[in-house]
Write a protein that binds this DNA or RNA. Structure first.
Length: 501
RNA sequence: GGCCCCAUAGUCUAGCGGUUAGGACGUCGGCCUCUCACGCCGAAAACAAGGGUUCAAGUCCCUUUGGGGUCACCA
């Protein structure tokens, strides 16, 4: 039996503690499909082991926080059918579960590390660090903090801090040796400490970095198995070092492969829809999405590809994980979704469609935009068709292509595509999705790229509605929802060169 | 670039030393059929390369190649 396999089997019986796992998303944007993916494996393992699944919000970055994001995470996770035993919204024995509310805990723990000499205060300015980095890059040295403040007398550090001097707290990484991460899926991963920076633990705003918060919380919340994405593997030594510095027992590490774009790079919104809300709005059934995620890196054991969460829980084992990064393939997701639709009773399907968009709530948003534009009720459905579609088939619309071609005379196609992607990114950076905001962003963007709204807005309309005429553009975009609208814009930008020759 | 991870068809995967390398998506062909779709049948399509170990290697080891991740006061 190979070592990895042995490690995986031992993993299931690790330590006598009851299994507790967590998903720890950061509320910095739309609910990510990767969050659901990792949540699924945490959830499945917890349920199989009779353990607990905890949701923790990692909102220690004040600058990236997005107001609506946390609620969207709850909604999205519940939508796919994953629920948690403890979390910010439902509480639990280790509350609070929102890191921004645990500041005192981190500060106290950072102090413990300073007291024991495992961490130190650093007064280096960001300017100095930036300069250092440029220099290291120029000289092709290993990037990282040069430990300038490490030699500082702790007493002096304490005094300067007490005097109100701005500083951070850094981990005093051992100067030599290596750290072995016992990854249960990969075996031992040994990383030389030369690769490990004196990582910032406490930021100058008093908030902890991920590294400190994550280790402190996982310990305090009695997390036994850390199941997270592979991108974390290279910072795990820092975490191991922290556990040792505190004298705590490490959790069992499991680094799952990363979901990939078609080109095998880490899944990203530029190349793939990554918001769970997109899949919801595009008419993917939650169970189909979850089932599909279960196929990413894991297989049932027989040739079964369609299975329920309960079946997955019953059949789950770590030795059926494959480590190659799975490409998130929309075609196969759609095929699976088709299976789920076909298995629905007509009654259940009716409910699903109503839940989706064929409901009074959504119609009430659409109708104000079209009432003046219809003369008989029978004109309604054709008039609002694009409010109920996912991707538009622009290639089959000669009028759209002709119009785009015309507009490309003043706005070259390649540039158009680039500019549109810029717009999408600017829209993504905004909280909320109100038409006034969208319009403001679009107007500012138009000006910035040096194109008249008379040219850019028609292009937006063409790509977003697939028509030359529509209700007021920005209200239409608002009602369509950010997911569908952004997807059409991005997808449209990708398609432009093939549409207009 | 340093370090780390990974490697079966275009894609998701089965495979744990002896298989005609299996299944699924997609593609192509056929059947069914008033059309389309579903469904059914069939086809093309893979062990990255080179060295070992072994009677025997997709499976174990090494090297190379390729892909990915990571090197922040972001998570």
């Amino acid at each position: 039996m190979c070592l990895v396999l042995q490690a995986r089997i031992m993993a299931a019986s690790t330590s006598g503690r009851p299994v507790r796992v967590r998903i720890a998303p950061s509320p910095t944007g739309d609910p990510h499909v990767g969050t659901a993916y990792i949540a699924l494996f945490n959830y499945v393992f917890a349920k199989q082991q009779g353990g607990k699944f905890i949701l923790r919000i990692e909102d220690t970055d004040q600058t990236r926080a997005r107001g609506d994001s946390e609620q969207m995470i709850y909604d999205a996770l519940r939508w796919v059918g994953l629920s948690w035993d403890e979390g910010p919204d439902i509480g639990g024995p280790h509350a609070p579960y929102r890191q921004s509310e645990r500041g005192a805990i981190y500060a106290a723990h950072a102090q413990m590390l300073i007291d024991s000499g495992a961490a130190y205060r650093c007064f280096c300015t960001t300017e100095r660090l930036a300069k250092l980095r440029v220099q290291q890059q120029a000289e092709k040295l290993t990037l990282g903090y040069d430990r300038h403040c490490r030699g500082l007398d702790p007493k002096e550090g304490a005094a300067r801090a007490a005097a109100g001097e701005v500083h951070v707290v850094r981990l005093a990484t051992p100067l030599e040796g290596s750290v072995v991460v016992k990854d249960r899926l990969r075996g031992d991963v040994s990383i030389d400490v030369g690769q490990v920076d004196d990582q910032v633990l406490l930021k100058s705003d008093g908030m902890p970095t991920y590294h400190l918060a994550n280790v402190v919380d996982d310990h305090l919340m009695e997390i036994t198995h850390v199941i997270r994405a592979e991108e974390w593997i290279s910072s795990t030594p820092k975490h191991v070092l922290l556990y040792r510095a505190f004298g705590w027992e490490e959790p069992a590490w499991y680094h799952m492969p990363l979901l990939r774009n078609a080109d095998k790079s880490k899944i990203s919104k530029r190349k793939n829809p990554v918001s769970i809300n997109y899949y919801r709005d595009a008419g993917v059934l939650p169970h189909a999405l979850l089932n599909f995620l279960g196929l990413m890196g894991w297989s049932f054991g027989d040739d079964r590809e369609k299975f329920t969460l309960e079946e997955m829980i019953a059949a789950f084992s770590w030795d059926r994980i494959s480590l190659g990064g799975p490409v998130f393939n929309l075609d196969k997701l759609t095929w699976l979704n088709e299976k789920y639709i076909h298995d629905l009773s007509y009654d259940a399907l009716a409910d699903a469609v109503i839940d989706w968009r064929l409901n009074k709530g959504y119609l009430t948003k659409v109708l104000p935009l079209v009432r003046e534009r219809i003369k008989r009720l029978d004109e309604l459905i054709p008039a609002i068709e694009y409010f109920f579609s996912g991707d538009l088939d622009l290639a089959s619309r000669p009028d759209v292509i002709a119009e785009l071609t015309k507009l490309s005379a003043t706005w070259p196609i390649a540039q158009m595509a680039t500019d549109l992607r810029t717009l999408v990114e600017q829209l993504e950076a905004k909280d909320g999705w109100a038409h006034k905001t969208i319009e403001e962003v679009a107007r500012a963007w138009s000006e910035a790229i040096g194109q008249k709204a008379k040219v850019t807005f028609p292009v937006l309309r063409l790509l977003v509605t697939g028509r030359k005429a529509s209700p007021p553009l920005f209200e239409t975009i608002e009602v369509l929802g950010k997911e569908i609208a952004r997807r059409r814009l991005r997808h449209g930008a990708d398609l432009l060169p093939t549409l207009v020759k």
